[in-house]
Design a binder for these strands. Structure first.
Lengths: 208, 208, 208, 208
DNA sequence: GGGTAATCGAGACGGTACGTCGTGTCTTTCC
DNA sequence: GGAAAGACACGACGTACCGTCTCGATTACCC
């Protein structure tokens, strides 16, 4: 059983229309926003984080730099938007905590490994180390993800699988951290048995 | 009881000599190397990773840029050297696993919070996301630290506190990851109770 | 005795109405035109030619940029309109050529120095160096002014003060040029004795 | 008889070397300076003042913008250098004041008309209307030219052709102004007879 | 007297240029 | 041959204007 799947529609047309987009009046042009996000994604995928610049995105999107700065105050904000467009992680709900956490973890690592998401998220974390705005955005995002992922343990707690004094957010934190560090140190292709072992340790550690 | 202490010799004189260093002939000038490393550390501490540039280090060290590039092929290499000059933290050995792990974790977070090490290590992680050399250096460093830290659990295993099928390196990985993510998301001032709770979960999860 | 005085009606109200002007139907709104011209004049006076941009004028006039572009095809056109709103100086007629020319010259320089006219005229000359329309407008304006100013010498010629072969337009040209260059090189605060000396040279040069 | 002719050597090679120039150590590279000045001249000639930008010059010279800004603090400074490279006006010395002044004037106007100098000088004057630095540079330049040109009248004064109370600088000012305004209003193709008439007026006005 | 048409403020759009900063390479001069 | 010094080509930064556009609201004019 899967909850929370969010897909996105890719309109790959916009990027190579040939003709320039125009203003549609005194309001944001969604076509421009779309083109910019797609260009950003493409630049990241092709040139990596080191080649990712506002200029490069603007060039590729055939957009003016001010148009980007108007809507995304920093490189990080753009990165996060790109990441959000990509991401659709499943939060499993099988009725078994260990299975749920292991499913989440393997799903997340596979998602990072098999889509551009991993590279993008690495970029965001890197950016957050030098840009205060990025750090805040990342912190907010991470917190919201912890809440979401914490629900897995919360459900198990409701089922009586987990000790009363356990904080689901803390569990989410531990599980996420394990995934983050794997991403940041290039160890996404972790043996699934190891992942299960790690999850088992935590689940054993918190059960009633 | 304390193991693995590494100290460094601080020659704080070099940074503000006033007069420029000169060549000492056809060989590397240690005073320059020292001045550069100290300047790098100071820049990182004062301006953070965002202000850390080869130019800034050269300015502060009163060194020529080529002198830096001659000895450190990339920003990452310099960062790693700077980090290795730092005093490392202690790995406690009290005879009690939970106490050891909690001591290690609080010590590490405090070390990152109270010395330049935190800013430096954040920078290395950030750099490693786009620089291959930094990534390799970071991976090697992290692996060696896992081995070192794994000894804590290894000892507990020898004492029979821990189940046979537990991989001490995996435990080290989980504990370190928890610390890393806190560093990278600016949550070093974590409540000590929370840290103990996290450690307790893991220790409960792996005990015989 | 004074000839050729042109006044303008200042409706200083429009500039700071607070509330935005609206369309008054399918025809030009004179209040907007007025507000734009006044804003342009104010911007020129306060920030000079370098701060004079369509954006700045629109902001100050609380007008839309298209409203400006609709009625003034170029910055130059707006500048010219602004200049023409200015009060023009008097052409003296005392019955004495030297007195008339000196009066004209000191009056013109004082006018440029003490009113926005100087800044505006400088701007037009500058604009005319790269804008063809401005160049034409400036040429036409300058020619008409030469005719007007030539009448001073013309009258003296009628009185027999001036040699027959003297072209009054040429005299006007020489006198005006002297003033222009002073404006353009920031030498409006010229010693009056010097002005009189220059006029005397010309008057001596053309007298019967 | 002609005095003060200054020629320049054009090394048109530099502009299209194909390969980029490199630094020649910690000092100014004359090849870069040369390439920049030539590119500036070419841009001015081909695109006019409105197309003249530091960016365009840098592009054309295959130079970095900082290299230009390092040596020329403003657009005006660059323009003036370009103008100085171009200019080689004769200050005639025939022993006859009227002939000298007429020769100077026709020479100057012809020079402005037949070489890029005219366009360049117009640009400088325009620039000086919005840029304070340009204004100062132009004022200094104009003053030095007045001194130079004043020597023509000075010599005539020594010869006793000119009244004692006449200021040669003022005469130079009047003559130059006449030329400037012709340049700025696009009237360089003035009838030579008119020029002579203007000069005659002044010479008559100042003679003993 | 209801539709049409032109006007208004507003502001987004794709661009270009600004002036500054950092990169990594180079050369000279001094030791 | 190492080191300080700093110029060089390059390119990204974030901002200001450019001139064009589309909007929604607001009348005046014409059928």
């Amino acid at each position: 059983m899967v909850v929370g799947k969010v897909s996105r529609s890719v309109s790959a047309l916009t990027a190579s229309e040939g003709k320039a987009r125009r203003s549609i009046g005194a309001r944001r042009n969604p076509a421009s926003a779309e083109a910019i996000l797609e260009a950003a994604e493409a630049v990241l995928q092709e040139d990596g984080y080191s080649g990712f610049s506002i200029e490069a995105v603007a060039r590729r999107a055939r957009a003016g730099k001010p148009t980007i700065y108007r809507w995304w105050p920093s490189k990080a904000a753009l990165l996060i938007d790109v990441y959000q467009r990509q991401k659709h992680i499943d939060y499993p709900d099988t009725g078994d905590l260990e299975r749920d956490l292991a499913g989440f973890l393997t799903g997340l690592l596979a998602h990072w490994r098999d889509t551009p998401s991993g590279a993008i998220f690495r970029s965001i974390v890197a950016e957050a180390q030098s840009d205060e705005a990025a750090a805040e955005a990342l912190a907010a995002y991470a917190a919201s993800r912890r809440v979401e992922q914490g629900k897995i343990t919360e459900r198990a707690k409701t089922r009586g699988e987990v000790a009363d004094d356990v904080d689901p957010l803390q569990v989410a934190d531990m599980v996420s951290s394990y995934a983050w560090v794997r991403l940041l140190t290039g160890r996404l292709d972790e043996d699934e048995a190891k992942i299960r072992a790690a999850v088992r340790i935590i689940v054993h550690g918190i059960k009633t």
